[in-house]
């Protein structure tokens, strides 16, 4: 074989600009991917209008519902104000920041479009995540502003709110978004093996909806709460929303490690499913 002793081609220096220069440049590559997605989202900003309208309507309907149910006081530690803000936040995280990752994975795998992504020097899973981050930044800003406006108009600010704890709540929200994204990616990646995997998506959506997005976990019966806390779903919406409306240090130290744990599991599982799927793809084609 007429290659050099390492079995590699001699590469001209100007083409090795980033390949050998460590993780910082690698990160730069993915930042560029996030940036172009953000750019495209801004160019097509009118896309977001329908979502904003639906968001406002949804919040208003549930605000009316909670107002009718509450007669002053608290329910399971949540005041009316808190529960409305809670809803604004969970809807922001799950509905406002939704990404088409599941459908995208499904489509890429089933149509074989994945192959075209493989001939580029970047990791497919990381590429998808970077792209989602770019789009999410835009949606977070749009829906975030609307969430704050709606909360202020309907129930006003939370009394004695500790703004210093806000960054910790935001950290938890970011982890929630990561968990949600990678769990959806895992579900999408099952398309490597299964032809019909839409049911997973539906079940997942419903679980996230019932275990935290729609009502606080504390409103559920005790036995269901205990089961739910062992599952990843409440850590998508319930955990950050709870920390954002009623922060407490003990709860924070209870929630954060679990969020990190589930994020790690979801990321690890995505990478594993991807690698396995790739092996199958390389062996059997698209």
């Amino acid at each position: 074989m007429p290659a050099n002793p390492q079995g590699q081609v001699a590469v001209p220096d100007h083409k090795r600009w980033g390949a050998d220069r460590g993780p910082v440049l690698k990160l730069g590559k993915y930042l560029a991917i996030a940036k172009i997605n953000l750019h495209q989202a801004i160019v097509y900003r009118s896309n977001v209008l329908g979502g904003l309208l639906f968001y406002a309507l949804f919040i208003f309907v549930f605000f009316s519902l909670w107002r009718a149910i509450y007669h002053g006081g608290e329910v399971q530690g949540y005041s009316l104000r808190q529960v409305v803000w809670y809803l604004c936040i969970t809807e922001l995280l799950v509905f406002g920041c939704r990404t088409p990752v599941f459908t995208q994975m499904n489509e890429d795998i089933k149509t074989g479009a994945l192959a075209y992504q493989l001939i580029r020097p970047c990791h497919y899973v990381a590429y998808q995540f970077a792209g989602a981050v770019g789009r999410m930044v835009f949606n977070l800003v749009c829906f975030g502003i609307l969430a704050v406006v709606l909360g202020m108009v309907m129930v006003g600010p939370l009394p004695d709110y500790a703004l210093t704890k806000l960054p910790l709540g935001i950290l938890s929200a970011c982890l929630g978004l990561v968990i949600n994204f990678f769990l959806l990616m895992c579900l999408g990646l099952t398309a490597f093996r299964l032809e019909e995997n839409g049911a997973f998506y539906l079940v997942y959506q419903k679980l996230v909806f019932m275990l935290g997005m729609f009502i606080p976990l504390e409103f559920l019966p005790g036995w269901l709460q205990r089961i739910a806390r062992w599952l990843p779903f409440p850590y998508v919406a319930w955990a950050p929303a709870r920390l954002l409306v009623a922060f407490s240090w003990p709860l924070f130290w209870q929630i954060l490690p679990l969020q990190v744990f589930w994020a790690a599991i979801a990321i690890g599982l995505s990478l594993l499913l991807y690698r396995q799927g790739m092996r199958g793809l390389q062996a059997n084609g698209g």
């Binding site: 083409k15 440049l25 590559k29 560029a32 172009i36 495209q40 580029r120 020097p121």
Partner: peptide, 22 residues
């Protein structure tokens, strides 16, 4: 391989980054 909604300059810049072109 181009971004459908964006001008090609943006795709060129992104591809340059992906391929680690200085």
């Amino acid at each position: 391989q181009l971004w459908f909604h964006l001008p090609p300059t943006d795709s060129f810049t992104l591809l340059g980054r992906i391929y680690d072109v200085a």
